[in-house]
């Protein structure tokens, strides 16, 4: 049964030349002398949400983890855990979405595994993807070189994925014009690598959102961060939904954004480089690294007050990715 599923449904949807013969493993080349390797599991609920589904998310999530090591995503594995009774049309939709996202991100699904588990042992479908990416050594972002005066930028409006998933879970009688930002960030990162050693840090602000990533920079470097609240790009529907749900949009997950630290004075150059990049629409310099307030993120509020932008705590919202 599972064998037929793999042969008739899964492989035809994803094969780009290497999956067809169903070898036990795949032999790869073209990876250069430094590779990035990562893995991630996806359990998002609901599995379909505005702007994507668990399939596209599983491709983007792993590609983006590679991209944050300044690695060009090349190959993915795809592990599917299917709950017995998952409607076939849903599986087909997810596979179509995997294949579309992979083609768009320029990665190939080269190996995979499928397990069907009894009803109740999973929730519809869980996906694991591992990814290999090629690293051009000269482009490695180095956290150790971050220093006072460096500038922090984000590649577009934040909070869309987290809010879209939360909203599709809540029962609201009205619609928000809000979609997940799920996308591959490699095109953004590839352009930023033009900054050479001026590009010092890359991170996709997924779980915990922008707040978590900024706090990571603070604790990794021991330096302070000064962020301008008014400079943080936020879409209006995200703000409206955030107010409605009582969730801080800066703590809401993103799946198609990158936070970068670039050298002093390089912020506007970075924005210039990204100007024609569709995936970086709305990118902005949001603050800088400071010597004062070590390890803390200080937000200058819209009215000019100052407060700590704390690390997300409390109810970490489950299964947004």
């Amino acid at each position: 049964m599972t064998g037929r599923l793999i042969r008739d449904v899964i492989v035809p949807a994803l094969d780009r030349g290497r999956l067809g013969p169903l070898p036990d493993s795949v032999v790869l080349s073209d990876l250069g002398d430094a590779i990035a390797y990562t893995t991630d599991s996806f359990t998002v609920s609901p599995i379909f949400f505005p702007g994507g589904d668990i399939g596209s998310l599983a491709v983007h999530g792993t590609c983006n983890d590679l991209a944050c090591s300044a690695a060009r995503p090349m190959f993915l594995s795809l592990g599917l855990i299917l709950e017995e009774g998952l409607p076939m049309d849903q599986l087909e939709r997810i596979l179509h979405s995997v294949s579309e996202a992979a083609d768009e991100a320029g990665v190939e699904i080269v190996t995979g595994d499928t397990k069907v588990v009894p009803k109740g042992s999973a929730d519809g479908v869980f996906i694991n993807t591992s990814g290999l990416g090629r690293v051009d050594r000269s482009n490695r972002a180095l956290t150790e070189t971050i220093c006072e005066g460096d500038e922090i930028l984000v590649s577009g409006p934040v909070g869309n994925h987290g809010m879209a998933v939360m909203l599709s879970r809540a029962e609201f009688s009205f619609d928000f014009d809000l979609q997940s930002d799920s996308a591959s960030i490699w095109p953004v990162v590839e352009r930023l690598t033009a900054l050479g050693p001026g590009l010092k840090f890359l991170r996709d602000p997924t779980r915990g959102g922008l707040s978590a990533t900024l706090n990571e920079i603070g604790s990794a470097t021991g330096l302070g961060l000064r962020i301008e609240e008014s400079a943080i790009p936020l879409d209006k529907p995200v703000l409206a939904a955030a107010e409605m749900l009582g969730i801080d949009p800066l703590q809401a997950a993103n799946e198609g954004k990158v936070v970068a630290v670039v050298g002093r004075g390089l912020g506007s150059k970075a924005l210039d480089i990204l100007r024609d990049c569709r995936q970086a629409a709305g990118s902005a310099v949001i603050g800088k690294i400071t010597a004062e307030n070590p390890s803390k993120v200080i937000l200058t509020t819209r009215i000019g007050g100052a407060r700590v932008l704390a690390e997300p705590s409390g109810e970490l919202l489950p299964r947004i990715c």
Binding site: G246, I298, A306, R307, V308, A310, S313, G314, E315
Partner: peptide, 27 residues
């Protein structure tokens, strides 16, 4: 007493005084 493991009511509520102090801290 933290938002994850609140002891008192002012930490439990998202609008509680302790939750506000914890979340926004002091500069």
């Amino acid at each position: 007493c933290t938002p994850e493991y609140p002891v008192g009511p002012c930490m439990v509520s998202s609008e509680g005084t302790c939750a506000a102090y914890y979340k926004y801290g002091a500069v």
